[in-house]
Design a binder for these strands. Structure first.
Lengths: 168, 168
DNA sequence: GTCCATGCAAACCTTTTGCACTATA
DNA sequence: TATAGTGCAAAAGGTTTGCATGGAC
């Protein structure tokens, strides 16, 4: 059904193949194709993005298979699942970039910028000491207006009460 | 349909009433009932939680109305919407507590602990300087094991590749 | 032959919307 | 009385699942 890939399998896809083999799971052309798309982009891809890119590449893979493969990619820790409150998930591979980074999300244009913060480590240490909590991962998202939108003079409406509320 | 509330309207609900009036929107018994439930709990409530509590209080209010009222409460900034990756949203009122706080989420028992962090402010200042970004709000969630689950000897399975990957 | 993946469609779940009816201001 | 809210049910949208088919070992 799926024609054999003409291009060689990329190193990252091979890593995914290794994960599959280690878990006794078949390495199929569909899984490789989905992984190839995810690893060849530095964007935060939605499932629709992935499906579109597959189609553009001549592959026609069912959504169910895409979802199932993404689940495997996330389990393998090679891919991270993101949720920017858009009503659907996005996927981002964790190779060739900082393994831990945070996101700046523009509430006007939807643009996402990544940044690294060492302060987060300090926070995690505090937390461990104060609550006896053992952190495994975290998510920091800062929402606001990006530089380009500020430059255009954009502003965000405030709809709260006219008079600020004192917290008791 | 809805019997008149026997208890006096709480101050927080009155605040919501003020918001509605300021925006030319009617203050209805349903809206007051939903607000009452949200303001009388310090939990992170799901829509089902809210519906259940309303029923327990003898109120039978349609889900659509609950959703529509929550939308108003969030717009008024009296209530914050939360998403802990459970597939649905939770709602938490912002009165009688720290207006800005972060969440510690136990991956085993699902327990949520709140904490405050001043470091976040420093991060936001960095970001503003470095990216020209104007932050309005943020979300920091730290996932891991809570003290009680650690005490019970719980552990989280790691399903990634057996050999850690070097980021290129 | 067994095991599992695939693809399609149906199911699922939360959330939103349309509409007839009702209550608010 | 005009305007907007309510409740029900249906729709929507993303994600998951059931099942028959098909490929790999």
């Amino acid at each position: 059904m799926i024609p054999p890939a003409t291009t060689a399998v990329s190193p990252f896809v091979r890593l995914f193949g290794r994960y599959l083999r280690e878990h006794g799971l078949p390495v199929t052309p569909q899984r490789q194709a989905v992984a190839e798309v995810v690893f060849s982009s530095t964007e935060h891809l939605s499932v629709d993005d992935i499906e579109r890119k597959l189609r553009e590449g001549g592959e026609r893979i069912g959504k169910a298979t895409i979802y199932r493969t993404l689940d495997l990619l996330v389990r393998s820790k090679l891919v991270a699942e993101r949720d920017f409150n858009e009503g659907f998930k996005r996927y981002e591979h964790r190779l060739s970039r900082q393994p831990e980074h945070e996101h700046l999300i523009c509430q006007r244009c939807g643009g996402v910028t990544e940044f690294k913060s060492e302060e987060i480590q300090a926070i995690q240490v505090h937390i461990a000491g104060r609550f006896g909590f053992r952190p495994t991962r975290h998510k920091l998202e800062i929402y606001g207006l990006c530089a380009s939108c500020i430059a255009v003079g954009a502003d965000l409406p405030s709809e709260g009460l006219t008079c600020p509320i004192e917290t008791v």
